[in-house]
Structure formats: C-alpha cells, structure tokens
Computed example of a mutant assay.
Amino acid sequence: MVAATKFFRVDDLLVQIYNSEAEMAQEVAEITQKYLQYVLQQQDTAAVLLATGNSQLKFLDALIALGGIDWSRVILFHLDEYLGITADHPASFRRYMRERVEKRVCPQQFHYIEGDALQPVAECDRYTKLLQAQPIDLCCLGVGENGHLAFNDPAVAHFQDPYAVKLVKLDLANRQQQVNTGHFPNLDSVPQYAFTVTLPSICSAQKILCLAPEKRKAQVVKEMLQGSISSKYPASILRQRSQATLFLDVNSASLLA
C-alpha cells in the first residue's frame, strides 16, 4: 500500500496527502477494496454511491484492476445527472457509469437517475425510495471547483436539506467547469438544471471517501479546510463527519498552511 506523505485532522475530517494523483488513487482503491470485503463479510449486500468526473477516473480503474470484490453482491447508485439529456449523451453520467463501471464489474444492480424522465419530480421520489431502501455503506465522491458535492452548488446546498434527491439550477462556475474539463463543447450546451443527491443523504453513508486531486482544486481545498463550515463551500460539511476522509495530491494541497 502507498503511504500518505502527510495526514492530519481538520475538525472531524481526516485528510491525507500523496505525492501524486496516481498514488492517491491507488491507495483509495485499496481502502475501498478492503472496506467492501469487510462489509460483505458482515452482510449479504453492500450499497455504494459513486461519483463521476475526472477526479474519479484513476481511482475507478485502480479499484476494478485490484479485483477481490464480489460485485454480484454490490448495489450501486450515482450522485447526480443532468436534466433532459439521454442515457447515451456523451456527457451523461449514466453513460459514464455504464461504460466505466457497470459493464466492467457486473454489479447486482446499478440504479440510475433517469435524466430524461418525463416527470422529473416523480423521478426524484422514485430515486429517493431506492436510496432509502437500505443504508448506504460507502460514498465515493469528489469536490467541485466551487466547493460543491454532487450538484449541491453553494446557492442550493442545505446542510439540513429535507429532501434526499432534488432538482437544482446549476451555477455558472459549475457549468463552466463542465466545459473546462471537456464534458461539453461550450457553455450554452451545458444543461442549466440537474438532479442531485443532497448533502444529508451523502453524509448518511457509513464511510465517505472524497478525492480532490489537481492544481485546479487547490483554492477550494484551502477554503473548505481553513474557512468556516458553511454552505458557501458545501464540501466543508465533511469536517463534521468522522467517517469521512479527504484525499489530496501535492498539487491540490499546495495552498494549505
């Protein structure tokens, strides 16, 4: 196992820093493998919430390459999806998960948010019931450049959200990030609304592993760890979760005191 070069706590949140994104991804994969093996020794199935985005790519590849997980006993969910795009759209999170995860590991089930559902509010209710049918054993996610978790942007993030899944309007910084990372050709093509699993649902997971590599995340990492715990930087809520670990590389940690 690769060792973190530094580790410390900020409030209840454990933070670990690695020399490179590859080293970070490899260790998160090994932690995930061992944890899911442990969960499946204790119970029949494991429920896992997964994120999309560039921060997850190396981790997912490393996890799948490790093997050693009985995926036929794992039920998968994902955190968010754009409103109004089909499952085969190049930027669809369903497509991302289907190609990068489901086809490669064949889980017992992969529950998808249907972004092009004809009744979006009913789709929120449907997915809420699926999420609440069993405890979430593990949530793997990243941090947006505006501090969002899933699509809980600062303007719509609520630490005591009454909803488990909701429709939100995406802010400009979030939509621009989707262009900058190559998911859409220009800002006008990025949907303005999306489905998201809310912060209380994320925080209810028994274990939370948050990956935030790359230089472009350095400023938001500094704010979420050294600023106040506030919806201004939604990811700061993880500082209240003792079951959460934030994984950084030297680039994303470069502005920390």
Rank of each mutant, 00 (worst) to 15 (best):
K129H: 11
E81A: 05
L199A: 13
V28C: 01
R9D: 09
E214A: 06
D88Y: 03
E145F: 07
F110T: 00
R100K: 14
K215C: 03
A212P: 00
F59Y: 13
N174H: 12
Q26T: 08
V220C: 05
C139S: 13
H183K: 12
P90C: 06
A244E: 04
I85K: 05
A87V: 00
C210S: 08
G147E: 13
E114Q: 13
Y82V: 03
P154I: 14
T5Q: 14
K103D: 05
F7V: 10
I237E: 02
A164H: 12
L118M: 12
S252D: 03
F110S: 01
E145I: 12
I113W: 01
T196L: 11
G144L: 07
G144A: 12
C124Y: 09
R241Y: 08
L36H: 00
N180Q: 09
L60C: 02
L256V: 05
A212N: 04
L76D: 00
H183V: 02
N54D: 08
V221F: 02
L130Q: 12
D137H: 15
P135L: 13
R95W: 07
Q119S: 13
V156A: 15
A244R: 03
A218G: 04
Q132E: 13
T181A: 07
H89A: 05
L238E: 04
R98I: 00
Y163R: 12
V197F: 10
Y18W: 04
S189F: 10
Q16K: 11
P154D: 14
S231D: 11
V143S: 07
V156N: 13
E114D: 14
N54V: 06
P200H: 14
L199R: 11
L187F: 15
G115Y: 08
A235R: 08
S201L: 11
S230V: 07
I237Y: 00
E102N: 04
G115T: 11
A164S: 15
Q41N: 12
Y127N: 06
I17M: 01
K207C: 09
V10T: 10
Q177W: 03
Y112A: 11
L172P: 03
Q160W: 07
A205S: 14
Y112N: 03
V143M: 14
A257K: 07
Q109T: 09
M97Q: 06
V101Y: 00
D249T: 07
Y193R: 15
T86C: 06
E23L: 04
K215V: 04
T5A: 13
C210W: 00
A150T: 12
K169D: 14
L209K: 00
H78Y: 02
L60R: 02
P90Q: 04
V48A: 03
A244G: 06
F93C: 08
T181C: 11
K34D: 09
A122D: 15
A46H: 01
V105E: 01
F59I: 06
R94Q: 13
P90S: 04
A212R: 02
K103L: 03
V179L: 07
K34W: 00
A22V: 02
A62F: 03
N186G: 07
N54H: 10
C124D: 10
V221P: 08
A133P: 01
G227N: 11
C106A: 10
A3L: 12
Y38N: 11
S230E: 14
